[in-house]
Write a protein that binds this DNA or RNA. Sequence first.
DNA 1: TCTTTACTCAAGG
DNA 2: CCTTGAGTAAAGA
Length: 104
Amino acid sequence: MNPKSFKPFDERCYELLLKIPKGKVTTYKEMALVLGTKAYRAVGRAMAKNRDFVVVPCHRVVCSDGKVGGYANGVDQKIQLLEREGIPILRGKVVGLELVLYRF
DNA sequence: TCTTTACTCAAGG
DNA sequence: CCTTGAGTAAAGA
């Protein structure tokens, strides 16, 4: 067994996402950091292709700037979901990202 | 191999 | 606000 027998990159993202409690969010950057990579894009890309808008709370992932980023089901939908969980969003950006940012 | 992509950072306009 | 360029990793052609 070699130390490189890691699960698919996508699966890693999902596991992390599932750890995010309600009312909290994470950034693509934090995800990549925890996964031990710097390919912030790979994280977002994994979501885009899977768009687990039911299995995985990918709507709780935003940009490091607090910008909502994107959503396979529609960015507007993502914003509604976040606001519903108690996360205020203004002009497509999370208000007080640090306050709702879940750190692993 | 090349291009595109739900990213990020830095720099210039 | 915008675009470039560089860094990085995965999917598709």
